[in-house]
Computed example of a mutant assay.
Amino acid sequence: MKPKKQEPTPCDDLFRMRLEQMLDQRHELYRLAGKIDWSVVEERFDRLYSDEGRPAIPIRLMVGLHYLKHTFNESDETVVERWVENPYWQYICGEEYFRHELPIDPSQMTRFRDRIGEAGCEFMLSLTVVAGIATQTVSKTSLTAVNVDSTVQEKAINYPTDARLYHKAGSAL
């Protein structure tokens, strides 16, 4: 079934404080949450769900967890565990009040990635580029060239114990 919309409640809870009232509005994650067009994200991924069955996990929560995972180099398990401890992480994921329980099972993140596919991941990446340009943390000139780190690529290195070197040495004589 389609995910529930995360809509703000019209009346405040008498004994709970809203996250936006607790947090420093100058914090980078607070500002980033305002720069991402979440309605475009929900519109893009909403069509991947059917109208039948159990309601799905909110799309903003899933996309926010993936952004946090890659920003802070976390695994699926640790990003969900740290989400409970950090009110800024909860705010960027669309929470209205601080929650003390895990938002999802970590295996849901893998299922979401399978659902959105490679095109969906590229769409999420494009939104980060748009947000980077909007906040002036990324300049348009830095997007003209791509730097590739080749330190992890396989190299054609022959070690002294390689049998092919012995064969070459013997045939060269």
Rank of each mutant, 00 (worst) to 15 (best):
residue 120 G to K: 03
residue 125 L to E: 06
residue 172 A to I: 05
residue 125 L to N: 12
residue 23 L to K: 01
residue 90 Q to W: 02
residue 88 Y to I: 11
residue 136 Q to H: 14
residue 69 K to H: 13
residue 47 R to K: 11
residue 117 G to L: 03
residue 6 Q to P: 00
residue 170 G to M: 09
residue 47 R to C: 12
residue 85 E to C: 08
residue 128 T to A: 09
residue 157 I to V: 10
residue 133 I to Q: 01
residue 44 R to M: 07
residue 97 Y to V: 00
residue 59 I to N: 04
residue 18 R to T: 02
residue 126 S to F: 13
residue 19 L to H: 01
residue 47 R to D: 14
residue 105 D to V: 12
residue 116 I to K: 04
residue 8 P to H: 04
residue 79 V to W: 08
residue 10 P to F: 06
residue 73 N to W: 15
residue 93 C to Q: 05
residue 62 M to S: 01
residue 35 K to G: 07
residue 110 T to V: 11
residue 33 A to T: 03
residue 129 V to K: 04
residue 26 R to D: 02
residue 126 S to E: 13
residue 112 F to Y: 14
residue 130 V to K: 14
residue 25 Q to T: 09
residue 102 L to W: 06
residue 29 L to F: 12
residue 14 L to H: 00
residue 148 V to L: 11
residue 166 Y to T: 02
residue 74 E to M: 15
residue 35 K to L: 14
residue 43 E to V: 05
residue 101 E to N: 01
residue 38 W to S: 06
residue 35 K to W: 05
residue 123 F to I: 10
residue 49 Y to P: 05
residue 141 T to M: 08
residue 74 E to Q: 15
residue 65 L to A: 06
residue 93 C to N: 09
residue 28 E to K: 14
residue 139 S to F: 01
residue 43 E to P: 02
residue 24 D to H: 01
residue 142 S to K: 10
residue 4 K to S: 03
residue 97 Y to H: 00
residue 129 V to D: 02
residue 58 P to M: 06
residue 166 Y to M: 02
residue 121 C to F: 09
residue 88 Y to E: 10
residue 12 D to I: 09
residue 95 E to G: 00
residue 144 T to Q: 08
residue 19 L to D: 10
residue 172 A to G: 00
residue 91 Y to D: 07
residue 68 L to M: 09
residue 106 P to Y: 13
residue 20 E to I: 10
residue 65 L to I: 03
residue 39 S to W: 08
residue 6 Q to T: 11
residue 36 I to Y: 12
residue 136 Q to G: 13
residue 99 R to Q: 04
residue 143 L to C: 12
residue 132 G to E: 05
residue 15 F to V: 00
residue 101 E to Y: 01
residue 71 T to A: 14
residue 65 L to R: 05
residue 150 S to K: 07
residue 28 E to R: 08
residue 142 S to V: 03
residue 27 H to P: 03
residue 131 A to W: 11
residue 5 K to L: 10
residue 49 Y to D: 04
residue 110 T to A: 15
residue 63 V to I: 08
residue 63 V to Q: 09
residue 152 V to G: 15
residue 115 R to H: 11
residue 47 R to S: 15
residue 169 A to Q: 00
residue 5 K to W: 10
residue 137 T to L: 07
residue 87 P to E: 06
residue 1 M to G: 13
residue 47 R to V: 15
residue 22 M to S: 13
residue 60 R to F: 02
